[in-house]
Amino acid sequence: LLPSFEIGAWTEDDVYCWVQQLVRKGDSSAEMSVYASLFKENNITGKRLLLLEEEDLKDMGIVSKGHIIHFKSAIEKLTHDYIN
Rank of each mutant, 00 (worst) to 15 (best):
M32W: 15
G66T: 14
E76M: 10
K25C: 09
S29G: 11
L38K: 15
K65A: 08
H67F: 11
F5V: 14
E6Y: 01
T79H: 14
W18D: 04
K58N: 08
W18A: 05
T11D: 08
C17A: 12
D27M: 11
D14G: 03
I69E: 15
A9T: 12
Q21L: 03
G46T: 05
D81F: 11
L38S: 06
Y16T: 05
H70R: 12
F71K: 00
N43F: 05
F39P: 02
H70M: 13
L1C: 11
I44S: 00
V15K: 03
G61F: 02
V63E: 10
L1V: 12
D81T: 12
T11L: 00
W18V: 00
L51E: 15
E76A: 10
W10V: 01
D59Q: 15
I68R: 13
E53C: 14
K72D: 05
A9M: 12
D27T: 13
H70C: 08
S73N: 13
T79W: 08
S4Y: 09
I68K: 06
H70F: 15
Q20L: 08
G46Q: 09
F5T: 15
K58D: 06
N43Y: 07
L49K: 00
I44N: 02
H67L: 07
T11W: 02
G46A: 00
D81I: 06
G46K: 05
R48V: 02
I69M: 12
L1G: 13
R24M: 09
E55S: 10
T11I: 02
M60N: 02
I83W: 13
W10H: 03
P3V: 05
Y82M: 10
F71S: 04
E55Q: 10
G8Y: 09
Q21Y: 03
H80F: 11
A74G: 05
I69Q: 14
C17H: 13
T79G: 10
N84E: 11
H70L: 10
V23N: 06
I7W: 04
S33M: 09
V19A: 06
M60F: 01
I68H: 01
F71Q: 01
G61M: 03
V19T: 03
L57H: 01
K58P: 04
L22T: 09
S33D: 10
L52N: 01
R48F: 00
D13K: 05
A30W: 09
E54L: 05
L22I: 14
T45E: 05
I75P: 01
R48H: 04
E54M: 01
L78A: 03
K25R: 10
R24W: 15
C17N: 12
K72Q: 08
K65W: 07
Q20Y: 04
E31Q: 04
T11K: 07
D27V: 09
I44D: 06
V19M: 00
S29C: 10
D56M: 04
I7C: 03
I62K: 00
H80W: 09
I69R: 14
E41L: 07
I62W: 00
G26T: 10
F5P: 14
C17P: 01
V19I: 07
S33I: 04
D81L: 08
L57T: 04
E54Y: 06
I69Y: 11
S73H: 15
S4N: 14
M60L: 10
G26N: 06
N43S: 09
Y82G: 10
G26F: 13
P3N: 15
L78R: 01
E55A: 10
Y35R: 02
I83T: 15
L50S: 12
K77C: 06
R24C: 11
K72H: 08
E41S: 10
D81V: 08
L2M: 13
S33L: 10
E53N: 14
N43M: 08
L2H: 14
Q20K: 11
E53R: 11
G8Q: 15
S4P: 12
V19H: 00
K65N: 08
S73Q: 15
K58Q: 15
S33F: 06
L49G: 02
T79E: 12
C17R: 14
E54D: 08
E31F: 03
K25T: 12
G8H: 15
F5M: 15
Y82V: 10
V23Q: 15
K65M: 09
S33K: 10
I83A: 15
V63H: 13
K40D: 03
M60W: 07
Y35H: 05
Y35I: 09
T11P: 00
R24L: 14
D56K: 05
D81P: 08
A74E: 11
Y35N: 04
I75D: 01
Q21V: 02
A74Y: 10
H67D: 12
C17W: 10
I83H: 15
R24G: 14
T45C: 07
K25F: 08
I7M: 05
D14M: 00
N84T: 12
H70V: 07
H80G: 10
S73V: 07
V63C: 11
E53K: 09
G26S: 08
S73Y: 06
P3E: 15
H80V: 10
L49R: 03
S4R: 09
L38A: 14
I69D: 15
S64P: 05
F71E: 02
T45P: 01
V15A: 02
E6H: 05
V34I: 07
L51D: 11
I75Q: 05
I69G: 12
S4L: 07
E6A: 06
L51M: 14
E54W: 05
G66W: 07
T79D: 06
I7Q: 05
E31C: 09
V15Y: 00
F5C: 14
V19K: 13
D56C: 00
I7G: 01
F39G: 01
E6G: 06
M60V: 04
E6S: 09
